[in-house]
């Protein structure tokens, strides 16, 4: 299990959160309980299984929705 923190561009609509959450929950290897998309800090925090899922997949999923990923840290 790894912990990812992704800094996104400024989120403006609270429904963006629901979208990003919904999209990431669909990924295999995501720990759904840890998924936290925060509006004001425009950050996504989530634990994921790095044997099933690469961090790039998460980044791609988000940027496909039209949100720019600015910085990613994995621990």
């Amino acid at each position: 299990m790894k912990k990812a923190t992704l800094q996104l561009e400024t989120l403006t609509c609270p429904s963006c959160l629901a979208k990003i959450e919904g999209a990431l929950k669909g990924l295999d290897g995501i720990d759904k309980d840890t998924l936290n998309v925060s509006f004001n800090s425009s950050k996504v925090k989530v634990d994921f299984d790095d044997s099933k899922l690469a961090i790039e997949d998460i980044q791609q999923k988000i940027s496909k929705l039209g949100y720019e990923v600015k910085k990613t840290t994995v621990k």
Binding site: C13, S15, A18, K19, G22, A23, G26, G66
Partner: peptide, 19 residues
Amino acid sequence: APIAIQAFQALRVKVVSID
């Protein structure tokens, strides 16, 4: 166009957004 795309993405994850 951009609004519709966002709307479509929202619907795909079962969210009825403002878009």
